[in-house]
Design a protein around this nucleic acid. Structure first.
Length: 525
DNA sequence: CGTGCCGGGGT
DNA sequence: ACCCCGGCACG
């Protein structure tokens, strides 16, 4: 540490010095080397910098070296030793098991609509039992993921891995069990079932690679958006597996002891399990999941997929494709009895909403260990939309667990898959260019934390896992618009900027942005 | 060619 | 996060 500091400091100092010239006051000698670019006027600069810069520098140095270094080291160690481990252990493992288990059971899938509860209950318990009897599956799960998820807390790691492994086996289990035991989709066409199986397999893989990353951030249900989102700040959100949660969501009504939001570990588990139970049922979701996978994994971001009913005046938001389909089918299309029959018509009436938050992962890793982070950050304009929709979803479905509800705290855009469909709530990036000052929107494109993508949702055609690449491509295309806008540079601001105003000589007077060759902050167009 | 600033790299 | 710079598009 010490060394590093010194090095850094010294390098800094030397740079400054070389740029500003030697400490000795009036150094008449020109400074061609100052910035690499010989500038006659630059000779003007040195004295100035010296006065403030150099002197301060030295002071700083002393302070740091003598005082800071050692103390900080100590502090660090202390932290690592005492603070680091204790909290994590009790909080993680204990709750993880107890709560998870409890809610797992309680969380037995209760489909809001047509599904018969008892069947699921059966399956559930069966699964549970097997689960407990069974041990780790030799199935190699993505270690990297789980590791990335929880790096620093050993206890946690174990716990988590265990969990994951178990989940895996559960999944496997379910795959077998579900298809045989579950009659949930009694009337489903056999061909579909076959496809489903494939898909399911794919999904298992997908979920394996994806979910371990998932760390539900401890967030409050009503959480509003993080005001600092545009600064790259992380926003609490769910992660890629959020798609799963959807299923567990409805269950929370049946579950008296809803997993406490603040605890990522426990909430994580209960959600995963139930979710897996349904994958065999939900092919649409599966396909969407497949869709998700490439990007989220690549970007190490989190994603929440929701499905919004486009029926006019409805706007219901469900977290599963099937759910929304059913909703449409029963509510809007009026096919109550035949809950399972899907002619695919429904998907014309809903759209997929994709919430994406990059850099959440980082935030998560730091958040999940402890902090409940209850404070809700300032919200920003666009949030209203999401909020209202969310609340809608919540009330309608009761499907959103506190967690899943917390996820959408991000700004999100909705994209209609079918162009001919009605009213996409928000426009697609491409159109952004029209914004006069392009502020509100262009920002969202550029800001990494949020990405929007529309994905075709068609429950009727399934795909084998192999087609993942295609999907990825598609997705790339879809999500590219924002990127594309980058290619089209914004028409350079006309007003005078620091450079012009102050000139090269007074570079120090420039706004920092200008100094960094970034968009001027002082004279904004 | 000067300027504004994006993208990316270093610390 | 801060700092810097290569390089590009615009005028």
């Amino acid at each position: 540490m010490q060394a590093r500091r010194l090095v850094k400091r010294s390098s800094l100092g030397s740079r400054r010095l070389s740029a500003a010239g030697p400490p000795s006051a009036a150094q008449p000698s020109p400074e061609p080397g100052a910035r690499g670019v010989p500038k006659p006027e630059s000779s003007w600069r040195p004295p100035r910098r010296e006065g403030s810069g150099a002197a301060l520098e030295e002071e700083d140095e002393e302070e740091d070296v003598v005082v800071d270094v050692e103390e900080e080291d100590d502090a660090d160690e202390a932290e690592a030793g005492s603070v680091g481990s204790p909290p994590s252990e009790p909080a993680g493992p204990v709750k993880g098991h107890g709560a998870a288990r409890g809610s797992l059971k309680a969380t037995s899938i209760k489909r809001e609509m047509t599904f018969t509860a008892f069947q699921q209950e059966d399956i559930k318990s069966g699964l549970n039992q097997k689960l407990s009897d069974q041990h780790f599956f030799p199935l190699g799960m993505k270690e990297e993921d789980s590791k990335t998820a929880d790096t620093k807390k050993p206890g946690r790691v174990h716990e988590h891995e265990k969990e994951s492994t178990r989940s895996v086996c559960l999944l496997e289990q379910k795959r077998k069990v579900v298809s045989s035991n579950i009659d949930v989709p009694p009337a489903r066409k056999s061909s579909e079932e076959l496809d489903m199986d494939k898909v399911t397999a794919a999904m298992v893989l997908t979920s394996l690679s994806t979910s371990p990353l998932v760390r539900s951030p401890p967030v409050r249900p009503n959480e509003s958006l993080n005001g600092s989102w545009k600064e790259g700040g992380f926003v609490p959100s769910s992660t890629s597996s959020s798609g799963y949660w959807s299923w567990s969501a409805p269950s929370d009504q049946s579950n008296p002891s809803t997993p406490s939001p603040p605890l990522s570990a426990d909430s994580f588990k209960p959600f995963r399990l139930p979710s897996q139970t349904d994958d065999g049922i939900d092919e649409a979701e599966t396909s969407s999941l497949l869709f998700d996978e490439p990007i989220p994994r690549k970007r190490k971001n989190s994603m929440k997929v929701m499905f919004k009913c486009l029926w006019k005046n409805c706007g219901k938001v469900l977290s599963t494709a099937v759910g929304i389909q059913k909703h449409i089918r029963t509510i809007h299309l009026g096919r109550v009895g035949e809950s399972d029959y899907s002619d695919g018509e429904e998907d014309f009436y809903y759209t997929e909403i994709r919430l994406n938050t990059d850099s959440v992962a980082d935030g998560l890793s730091s958040l999940s260990p402890v902090s409940p982070s209850l404070a809700s950050p300032p919200s920003f304009p666009t949030q209203d939309v999401s909020k209202s929709e969310l609340s809608c979803a919540k009330t309608d479905t009761k499907g959103m667990t506190p967690l899943s509800r917390s996820a959408p705290t991000n700004l999100y855009l909705v994209h209609t898959d079918h162009a001919y469909q009605a009213t996409p709530p928000v426009n697609i990036p491409g159109s952004t260019k029209f914004m006069p000052n392009g502020n509100s929107f262009s920002i969202s494109w550029q800001s990494p934390p949020v990405t929007f993508t529309g994905v075709p949702v068609s429950p009727t055609h399934t795909r084998p896992a192999g087609s993942g690449e295609q999907k990825q491509q598609i997705q790339t295309v879809l999500s590219s618009p924002p990127r594309a806008s980058v290619g089209l540079r914004k028409p350079r601001g006309e007003g005078k900027k620091c450079r012009k105003v102050y000139g090269m000589e007074n570079r120090d007077m420039w706004c920092t942005a200008c100094r960094w060759k970034k968009a001027c902050q002082r004279f904004i167009d």
